[in-house]
């Protein structure tokens, strides 16, 4: 088999030394490998967006049908990876290198959109969440933010009722949001660790939401010409105590998001929100991101929406 893309960072590590790992989890369109340093490497099917520390395969196949199993050993050589007890070899010597670093507004290729237009797009995003989003994840909890964040009324409907599960997490969620809005880096590690891992999926809903919030902070800071160091500091506070609080896949995703490193569709969505690009582009990536997992995409979009509103309100003195 052949890879079409490989993340730059992973490729560099492999070129420096031989990496060994074992299969951690297998799904239809992807599988994950845990290396000797407990870092997760993802193999993605051709329809999946490139993501940090990943290799994307050219062939359209089901990894479940390939006979891959948890625990199988892999060795990453300079040009290919071989999966121990199988005949499977994946070549990446001709793959494109994909850089997961955030594309910030210091890059001259990006032209900022006006704040008015960004607000308009956020309003479209809210409509999208309402009309197309999957509501079984973080969505009902956003109702509790009604009096905390300016301009989010659109997302709320008095008919939304919290289930027992949402009632259970509500106070902790509000406590986290309070420390996030006030940028309290002392309280954030504790309040974030109390909400991480809430939700049903392999990347629980709250974690997806937090990823959206963190990535949007990096991009909005760049868009608004704010101090990026502070943005990284806040995000670091959020992930400080998350180890072993959630699934390994989710933990890795959150760590990457805290640095603004997200998969290519997620990245394109934030860029199309803030940069002067066509509205079709924005809508296309909203749809693509909303297709992630079951509720994951909507949870991420909710994070981007709330995170962006908080940053813009703060900037505008709201």
């Amino acid at each position: 088999m052949n890879a079409t893309d490989i993340s730059k960072e992973l490729y560099k590590v492999i070129q420096d030394k031989e990496v060994r790992g074992q299969i951690h989890s297998v799904f239809d369109n992807s599988f994950n490998v845990l290396d000797e340093n407990s870092k997760l490497i993802s193999f993605l099917g051709p329809n999946k967006p490139m993501a940090p520390y990943s290799i994307r395969i050219k062939e359209k196949i089901s990894f479940l049908d390939l006979g891959l199993e948890k625990g199988q050993q892999l060795t990453f050589f300079k040009d290919f990876v071989s999966i121990g007890s199988t005949d499977i070899v994946i070549h990446y010597n001709k793959a494109l290198l994909w850089d997961s670093s955030p594309i910030l507004f210091q890059d001259k290729r990006l032209a900022r959109d006006s704040i008015e237009n960004v607000f308009t797009k956020l309003s479209l995003m809210a409509e999208f969440i309402l009309n197309e989003g999957k509501k079984e994840g973080i969505f009902p909890l956003l109702k509790t933010l009604k009096d905390k964040i300016k301009y989010i009324d659109k997302l709320f409907d008095d008919t939304i009722t919290l289930s027992k599960k949402e009632d259970f997490i509500k106070d902790r969620f509000l406590s986290f949001m309070d420390s996030y809005i006030s940028e309290d880096v002392e309280k954030l590690p504790q309040s974030a660790s109390k909400v991480v891992g809430y939700g049903i999926g392999l990347t629980p809903s709250m974690d997806d939401f937090l990823s959206g919030i963190m990535a949007s902070r990096i991009y909005l800071s760049s868009y608004l010409n704010l101090d990026l160091k502070k943005a990284y500091e806040i995000n670091e506070a959020i992930i400080k105590n998350i180890n072993n609080k959630t699934t390994l896949v989710s933990q890795e995703m959150m760590k990457c998001s805290s640095r603004g490193e997200v998969n290519e569709d997620f990245r394109s969505l934030i860029i199309s929100l803030l940069a002067n690009r066509g509205i079709d582009d924005f809508y296309k990536y909203l749809e693509k991101v909303s297709d992630f997992g079951e509720t994951s995409g909507t949870d991420i979009i909710c994070g981007v929406y709330i995170g962006s509103l908080i940053m813009l309100n703060e900037y505008l003195g709201g």
């Binding site: 891992g197 809430y198 049903i200 392999l202 629980p204 609080k245």
Partner: peptide, 10 residues
């Protein structure tokens, strides 16, 4: 769900 601390508390 997965056995995260939070799901266990829930």
């Amino acid at each position: 769900g997965m056995g995260t601390d939070l799901n266990k508390e829930l």
